[in-house]
């Protein structure tokens, strides 16, 4: 078993073919690159579809989109904002409320490809060990960023926040932010299995809080077909969200993954040779199990 887990997905590739075993991953990378591309089209090609960066942007000179976490920091720092940024933040928050908060992580955030790559190498090279951070640490860090914003009266976290820093850097000039990219990669490679995104990042923690009621969810619709190959656990950045849905049949727990830290990345769908998982909605009851929206005790 340990051998297949060094290369999770091998079964799925054999059964479904390479494309089917990677389709969500590829779609995600296309989305990430495409949105970054839209931002870059302005400065590089002079095609101004989106101006700004993920902190706050203006699309087609009309649609404001702003990051609700940054707005929250700004409020904690004591600034009463203009309506534009408030509208933008509500639109964005509303979107993630519907599709799942951490869709931000899986589909937009520039750090995700870096930490995914680190996780991939860690798996292939069978690197073990490093520090073990509890998954709740991120919520403490989230609280810390807001409290320090309030104490310092500034967006303090934005001085170091790798997410906004890297995205802004790609569009406006990296400066020394390449070191940050490298640091994050090495951190996740050697210091902790999915150390940053799944344990520490306060931005991810913030977005997870938008996911309590989001309709769009992955569901282990055909969970009775599971052959316990464990490959979904091996690829999932937040594997603690899987068991309640996958193994909850006896306890009467529905097959929908309701854990707020699931980023709807769809890797479990890709990697499962038995086609257990599929995108679904929170409300869909399958196989006569009523959908249970009970949250996990721990996020």
């Amino acid at each position: 078993m340990s051998n297949t887990l060094l290369r999770p997905g091998a079964d799925a590739i054999a059964v479904k073919g390479w494309w089917s075993a990677h389709q969500w991953l590829i779609l995600r990378r296309i989305t990430q690159a495409g949105i970054l591309g839209l931002f870059l089209a302005g400065p590089l090609l002079g095609v101004w579809i989106i101006k700004g960066n993920i902190a706050s942007s203006l699309t087609l000179d009309i649609l404001p989109l702003s990051d609700p976490y940054l707005l929250l920091q700004s409020l904690f720092a004591g600034h009463w904002p203009e309506t534009t940024v408030v509208i933008g933040a509500f639109i964005v928050a509303g979107f993630y409320f519907l599709v799942g908060g951490r869709v931000y992580c899986g589909w937009i955030c520039p750090v995700n490809p870096i930490t995914d790559m680190a996780a991939w190498f860690r798996q292939r090279l069978n690197i073990k060990g490093g520090a073990r951070f509890p998954r709740q640490s991120r919520y403490w860090l989230l609280a810390m960023t807001l409290i320090t914003a309030s104490i310092s009266g500034s967006l303090l976290w934005e001085m170091v926040n790798p997410v906004t820093m890297i995205y802004r850097g790609l569009i406006f000039g990296m400066g020394m932010a390449w070191f940050l990219v490298l640091a994050l990669f090495l951190f996740d490679l050697f210091l902790g299995q999915r150390g940053w995104c799944s344990h520490l990042c306060p931005m991810g923690a913030f977005y997870s809080l938008l996911a309590f009621y989001s309709p769009l969810r992955v569901s282990a619709t055909q969970r009775e077909k599971c052959n316990d190959c464990m490959e979904c656990y091996a690829v999932c950045p937040e594997p603690q969200v899987i068991p309640p849905a996958l193994k909850g049949a006896e306890q009467g727990v529905g097959p929908v993954i309701t854990g707020i830290n699931c980023s709807n990345c769809g890797r479990c769908i890709d990697v499962c040779s038995k086609n257990v998982f599929q995108f679904s909605t929170r409300f869909k009851s399958v196989n006569n199990f009523s959908t249970v929206t009970k949250r996990e005790a721990m996020p």
Binding site: K51, N53, S56, S66, H79, L155
Partner: peptide, 17 residues
């Protein structure tokens, strides 16, 4: 300056325009 650092989200829209 102190209020500015509480308000600016570093989006660069001013730069662009």
């Amino acid at each position: 300056e102190t209020d500015f650092l509480a308000a600016c989200v570093r989006c660069g829209l001013c730069v662009r325009d």
